[in-house]
Amino acid sequence: MSAELGELGGNGGGTIHLVVLSGLSGAGKTVALRTLEDFDFYCVDNLPAALMPALVSAVSLGGHRRIAVGVDVRNRSEDLNQLPQVLAELAGTGVDYQLIFLDSRDDVLSKRFSDTRRRHPLSADGLPLHDAIALERKLLRPLAAIADRVIDSSELNVHQLRRLIATELGMSGGALSLLFESFAYRRGLPTDADFVFDARVLPNPHWDPALRPLSGKDAAIRDWLQAKPEVRRFLDQLTGFLDEWLPRFEADNRSYVTICIGCSGGRHRSVYLAERLAEHFRGTREQVLTFHRELE
């Protein structure tokens, strides 16, 4: 395997950074993968561990230096047992890897499955949920034991977990990272916002029946809002404010700033503005995230 991979970590394009995400179903692995994808990681979920070296080789040849792979109980047990050896061989080729294990309390996992009405991957053949969680914990215990970092998401909401993953894994070089988050006021303010801006004063495409089912990511909504002078003025003033003040946060050694934009339903105006702001700042910054609370 090592001969097939060669010296991946030093093949002229810089070190390859591999994040392997594992953990219990419902603990937040999908959220973590999506967050890393926003930070330009090449992400693959549910990859058999034995295929990881071939994936790293192929993806790195395509120019990607940051790769994230989800490995969980859907793997065959023999594949899970191979993972320590696979990671050791990758390290021997110069790949810089981290194994991150996402955990949560059994009662929290049970509630999450109940709230979302999802089936546990081990609940086939009528296995009760609590037994499926116990079996999964047993099967994944060897991975938790060798993890570089175990994250307990029991007390974290989706937004807090995204921030943690972005802060610990997504950012590079100490540059200021930005999260633009849209939300609906009727569901409450985000708990970890640094700035909050209210877009409810702007024209609302919700009242057009043809536009109502769409979101601020759709071209029809973008065109409708961009045609409104007050929307353009709001966006220009907001962009100017952030252009002036974000460097002050950076000078104060801040590493992460969350800018939240709210509207009535969290689907149209706030999403549009968050996306447009992210587009603007991606022109000058590498680490820009968007998160749309009501669209998740």
Rank of each mutant, 00 (worst) to 15 (best):
E7P: 00
L8T: 04
G10V: 14
N11R: 11
V20D: 01
S22V: 01
V31C: 06
T35G: 09
D38Y: 10
F41C: 08
F41A: 06
Y42A: 15
C43F: 11
N46P: 05
N46R: 04
N46K: 08
L47G: 02
L47P: 02
P48A: 03
P48E: 07
L51S: 05
V56D: 06
V56L: 10
S57G: 09
V59T: 13
V59D: 08
S60W: 00
V71I: 15
D72L: 06
D79L: 10
N81L: 12
N81C: 13
V86D: 01
E89S: 09
A91I: 03
G94I: 03
Q98K: 14
I100K: 01
I100A: 03
R105W: 07
S114T: 11
R117I: 13
R118M: 12
A134K: 08
R137G: 04
L139I: 06
A144Q: 11
A145G: 05
D152Y: 09
D152R: 09
S153W: 03
L156A: 02
N157L: 10
N157F: 09
N157P: 10
T167P: 00
L179P: 02
L179A: 10
S182P: 02
A184L: 13
A184S: 13
R187Y: 15
G188W: 05
G188I: 05
D192W: 01
A193V: 04
A193C: 11
A193M: 13
D194R: 06
D194T: 07
W207E: 11
R212D: 12
R212T: 05
P213K: 12
P213A: 11
S215K: 02
S215I: 09
P229N: 11
P229K: 05
R232Q: 15
R233H: 11
Q237T: 04
G240D: 14
L242H: 01
L246R: 00
F249V: 01
S264W: 04
S270E: 10
V271G: 08
Y272T: 04
A274P: 03
L277P: 04
L277M: 15
H280V: 12
E286L: 12
T290F: 09
T290P: 12
